[in-house]
Amino acid sequence: MASSERNQFRVAATSAELAHSRQQAWQLYQPAPPVTVPAFGREWQLRPGLTFTPFANAVRCTAHCAFCSEELQRYDGHQLTAKRLIDDYPAYFARLREVLHPFRAWPLGLSLSGLEATAEPQWLRELLSCLTQLEHQGVVFDEKVLYTNGSGFVHSPDLALALQDFGLTRLELSRCHDDEAVNQQIMRFNRNQPMRHNGVYATTVRWLHQHLAIKNSCILTQAGIATLPDVERYLTWAAGLGVGQVVFRELSRLEGSYLPNVFTEWIEQQRVPIEPLLAAVVPTLEAPRLGWQYTGSTLGYYYYNEHYRWQGVDVIFETSSYPALQAANATGVLQKLILHSDGTLSGDWDPDSRVLSRIAFPAPAQP
């Protein structure tokens, strides 16, 4: 089994081994010994390869996805950082420099996620400039990933050039269906967002493909992509746009760990379990579905992936567990670092949980 700082990769040699991996999934992940880093007046235990997220919410999101994780609140949660917009850029970027200073020379993955980073081009440009300056000062990002619905590229295509200059590893572009009407039912773009239309999406993807490595991200849902024929049709469509890698994600398994609301209800009603898809693609290594080739499995601390090749496209099926993520957090080892929009640096999506450092930004002015 090959290990990276973030996960472990194995290629099953037998059908029994593959079945065992599918059954145990993330439970087979073997965490590396934590590293100790002094920061903010004490020592912290960090998972090797952890990621840093400057939570993107300078403006409201340009879509309202029915599965949005920012609308979920744990029973032990306190507040949602998505409700607090970044309204003081100089203070925010000064804080960004401050919180990353103790972690210079420690390799971090950069995960640009939260709401929609491209929705406010000025903020994203300033963020990339600030992070580049920090790299010159010794901060190390060994992987840089942007998770986006792509809407901001329509009016600001130069963002692709800025990301290329920044050395973005890949751009994960969300699209939940190859039919724009079905996709809109799931992703629910604002009406003024051209990205809702397939023609605009196709033009944008072809432009991005000239400058960045693109991975399409498709959430599996009963209303959208749910069966293997659906998957193969989506892959044909994506390949026609020049996309060479696609990930199909099962909706994260909540297992009763979040307060019930319309989003948790939708997630459970729309869930497409990944196991039947995997069994249909490769029931056994000796008898894969025609055109499919198994290439390996990834074990993460709260997720499990299987990798395939299909007609020249790299395909990944992914499942994940929020309770497994919370169990890893409960060990006391920091699994990731998140700079929230109120200036709090924490090891959790909840800005009041696993706090490393807090600063009081002035409250935003009321309209």
Rank of each mutant, 00 (worst) to 15 (best):
I225Q: 06
S320C: 13
L339I: 01
K336L: 12
V182L: 11
V333G: 07
V37M: 05
Q133G: 12
L28Q: 07
V262R: 14
L18G: 00
E71F: 08
V355D: 04
I316H: 07
Y294C: 01
D314T: 15
Q269A: 12
W266A: 12
V315L: 13
T53R: 12
Y89Q: 10
P351W: 10
S21D: 02
P288I: 00
E43T: 13
S3I: 04
V99S: 12
L241A: 05
L235K: 13
D87K: 07
D178A: 15
F153Y: 14
G312L: 10
V11P: 05
G300D: 08
L28D: 03
W310I: 00
D158E: 15
A363P: 10
H209L: 02
A13R: 12
L163A: 02
K215R: 15
E265P: 00
A238C: 07
R309M: 05
V37A: 08
P283D: 00
A94T: 09
G138W: 04
F103V: 06
I267R: 14
A105N: 04
Y294V: 00
L278G: 03
G244Y: 02
L108R: 05
D314H: 14
V140K: 07
G240I: 08
F166M: 04
Q45M: 01
V281L: 14
R22L: 01
S69V: 10
R95G: 08
A94F: 03
T221G: 10
Y201F: 15
Q24M: 03
L339C: 04
L28N: 01
Y294A: 00
N198H: 14
H20M: 01
N261V: 09
Q185G: 12
Q164Y: 03
F103Y: 13
D230E: 13
P54N: 02
V231H: 07
L100C: 12
R271T: 11
L146A: 05
Q73H: 11
P90Y: 08
V139I: 08
E71S: 13
Q335N: 13
R74G: 13
F248L: 11
W237K: 07
E135V: 06
Q23W: 06
L251P: 07
E5S: 11
T81P: 01
L171C: 09
W207A: 04
T203F: 02
N7I: 02
T81S: 13
Q222G: 14
W123G: 02
L50Y: 03
L325S: 14
V140Q: 06
L128F: 08
H155Q: 15
L161T: 11
F55W: 06
A13M: 09
V355C: 01
L277V: 09
N190Q: 15
L131K: 11
Q122N: 08
